[in-house]
């Protein structure tokens, strides 16, 4: 039962924001701006270093939530929400984990749809929160039956 997964969380995983990864990501979203990729521009900026684009946390490893066995196919991405305390800096280390925040079902045109709300958290080495990334995944009735849920 997906409802039983609410509150389950992964172990923290250490991620380093690599310059090359930020450059590739910025290019892939068509935004290779100096503030993200040019070292001199970063040093002269108000942040004194390069920063990462706001959706860069999709690349972070946040571990595995135990007993949450989602299928690799048939999931629909419904919503994505970021909150930041400050921009993430190139070169810094971020500790990430994930939690199932909620699960609910609603009836619609395509049957009874499941909504799984998962939040990724990123902290610095002192355990201070830097960002959250919430993802709402929609799971159709057919896909849930395939999972035995």
């Amino acid at each position: 039962m997906l409802k039983d997964s609410i509150g389950k969380r992964s172990e923290k995983v250490r991620n380093t924001i690599e310059r090359g990864a930020v450059r590739k990501f910025a290019e892939a979203i068509g935004d290779p701006a100096p503030i993200f990729i040019d070292e001199a521009a970063g040093a002269e900026s108000v942040y004194k270093r390069n920063i990462a684009p706001p959706t860069f946390p999709v690349t972070f490893d946040a571990g595995v939530i135990p007993e949450l066995d989602l299928p690799s196919k048939g999931l629909i991405h419904g919503e994505q929400i970021y909150t930041y305390v400050r921009p993430l800096l190139v070169g810094e280390t971020v500790y990430c984990w994930m939690e199932v925040k909620d699960y609910y079902e609603r009836s619609g045109k395509m049957g009874r749809m499941g909504f799984l709300v998962m939040t990724k958290y990123g902290e610095n080495a002192n355990g201070e929160l830097l960002f959250t990334e919430e993802r709402i995944v929609i799971i159709s009735e057919a896909v849930r039956k395939g999972m035995g849920a």
Binding site: I35, I51, P54, E79, Y84, P87
Partner: peptide, 12 residues
Amino acid sequence: LEQGFIREYAIR
């Protein structure tokens, strides 16, 4: 981004 930063970004 030199004048401030994105505090929240929510998309459906």
